[in-house]
Design a protein around this nucleic acid. Structure first.
Lengths: 371, 371
DNA sequence: ATGTGGGCAAACAGCCGACAA
DNA sequence: TTGTCGGCTGTTTGCCCACAT
């Protein structure tokens, strides 16, 4: 949680800092007003004595790499002005848009692209001017005003495997603004998630969480395989060097390097020995001090060669692990249940669930079966 | 709560259906996007053994009748069209707006009105046309587009006691729309409010709720005096006739008549013997079946003459009250604490807190001391 | 390669009284 | 009394290119 209201958050002594769950259901949503994307997940806690349940859970993260191409452009003042249209970067237009018939004078076509709400936007795509350039004219201003875009916001054009155009937006990091929804107290909500999880864990009943990768300062739902891979292969020590993925403005990712400067509980009272953000870190590049100074072990990649696949057992027993009952418990359940799996869970793309990108997201919209 | 997720809502056996609290603080808010109004209240549970606490609570509802006049008009297609301005109803203009100088040809003036966010809107008010009528021209369309008003929405002009113009809006009952905020699960929120209240009650610590009169199907915060007056003066019986206030489209109130058709628990399992909406009712006018079929005792006014002031004690003991430990408990605490007060708590205006109207609300904005 | 600005025509905004419900 | 419309005018939108970076 972001803030701590002293004494106002109940303690749930029986709720561990990590709760092993099966993902019963996941529904993807996009806010109708802002196009902000988020997921709704129904989670079923797995009681420690129920080994069979884990078998029904699909541990291997499917590596559903989207077979799509996209481009993302940050809008200029001219792009968002009512005076003109949208200037398409040349290489982007050639990569994403259907080819123009250059025998026409000027070459032009009508583009249709679908957004997250299945609304179709049509644009006139024309290649003209001196020097020649790709432009979107008719229809563009409707899109800008309809989505309330401003200079600095970004637009994504995605061509999926069926050659259909998808269209997304990504707003600049402005002020949070709409965090003051009327009927909810964020305190109550935080307490409610804890209460719901504690109740669900005690009664073996499912509960529901909402998950917004961009809004959450830390991902609070972690794929078991990702967690497990990190715990088994990352040997944590003070001064250790690591890399960590961050999303870039252009909807890509890049890695930043850092050093572990401390290992300590984020909340020693309420969540003792929790692994959530228990690593204090420093960053090589100080980008205006934006990056968090605490991370969790499953968020980082060690820079020194990790134990890639199934390290010998005697290595594992030597791991200097903190006394964390949750981890040990998970560990044991895991090993007793599926000893044949070992430590390689087929995690091809550790980015594939948390930090779901818009591109992957829209691709899943197209192919719900992959979700 | 609106919906019941079977088995997913924890039971709080120690949380009574009614929780006696002192209102430590109340803050009034208006959503920056929609102008929707709501209150944020910090509530301090009063332990049953702490009689003194009740004394510090101000039981008497202050009858702060606003000394204001207002008018409310539902916007027509012409009002919201870009083609023209706003046609002010003649009597409204004469009642609310400053008088025009009729020696001018045509009579006109500049009006300035403040909205809930202290933004000032200016309009040209002109009296012209054949036949003559009051119109708002320059400035009006900015207001319409700024507030995103459509035909069917309403606008309120309020003249406060300092002769200043206040300006509010009231949207038509369209689809809920924005109920899908991203980071929250309404289930979690509901659970959270219960958990927060239970924890607060157990630890004598304050908790916070948000309160939106128009969004909540039933007001869940009731002034003690209002509750007490109802329990003491309304003799409930099957077939009893009553009246109940509803808000009208024009921001006024009107009473509908109905009959009590049953007395039963809304949730016999979770909240046995609760008085919340335990009265089943039928309505004389069937307005498209919009009105709720369950109400609480403090929402209604009996039609037969009630026991207005301090009925003789032997009458009270005969009240056919349901076995509700909460009520009896409150009752006893109350009588032990302030026997001299009797049953008349000086409640002049039973509408004054829940169902806070926009007019009263804006008036409180002007005079925070009254809050 | 692409952001911005001038020229220009078409569309829209917005003030007016006429008319009718 | 007041909702909608046609007439009229000033402003904005939006497509085109030139020019600069």
């Amino acid at each position: 949680m972001k803030k701590d209201i002293d004494g106002q958050i109940p303690n749930y002594p029986n709720l561990p800092s990590k709760l092993l769950c099966i993902l019963l259901n996941v529904t993807l949503h996009a806010d109708t007003e802002t196009d902000e994307v988020y997921a709704q997940m129904t989670l079923q806690p797995v009681p420690s004595y129920d080994r069979e349940a884990l078998l029904r859970s699909d541990l291997a993260l499917k590596s559903n790499k989207p077979q799509t191409e996209f481009f993302c452009k940050t809008l200029t003042a001219s792009d968002t002005s009512t005076h003109g249209g949208f200037s398409v970067p040349r290489r982007a237009a050639e990569k994403i848009f259907p080819p123009l018939d250059f025998s026409m004078q000027p070459p032009a076509q009508e583009l249709m692209a679908r957004d997250l709400h299945d609304n179709i936007w049509t644009f006139r795509h024309i290649y003209r001017g001196q020097p020649k350039r790709h432009l979107l004219t008719t229809g563009w201003s409707l899109f800008v005003s309809g989505k309330r875009l401003f200079a600095g916001d970004s637009v994504l054009f995605i061509r999926d495997e069926k050659q259909q155009l998808l269209l997304g937006i990504r707003r600049a990091n402005r002020q949070p603004a709409n965090l003051s929804s009327s009927v909810l107290s964020s305190d109550s909500m935080h307490i409610g998630i804890l209460a719901a999880a504690a109740h669900a864990a005690a009664n073996n009943s499912p509960f529901t969480v909402f998950y917004n990768p961009r809004a959450s300062p830390s991902e609070f739902v972690v794929p078991l395989a990702k967690y497990y891979k990190a715990v088994h292969s990352n040997q944590i020590s003070l001064g250790m060097r690591f890399r960590m993925m961050f999303e870039t403005e252009e909807s890509g990712t890049r890695r930043y390097m850092g050093t572990i400067t401390g290992i300590s509980d984020l909340d020693p009272v309420r969540w003792k020995n929790s692994q959530w953000r228990n690593l204090q870190v420093g960053w090589d590049e100080s980008t205006a001090g934006e990056k968090r100074n605490r991370v969790s072990i499953w968020e980082i990649e060690p820079v020194t060669a990790p134990f890639f696949i199934c390290p010998p057992p005697f290595f594992r027993s030597k791991h200097p692990r903190q006394a964390d009952d949750d981890a040990s418990d998970l560990d044991n359940v895991f090993k007793r249940t599926m000893p044949w799996i070992g430590d390689d869970f087929g995690v091809k793309d550790s980015q594939s669930l948390p930090g779901l990108s818009l591109v992957q997201w829209m691709n899943m919209q197209q192919n719900p079966s992959l979700a």
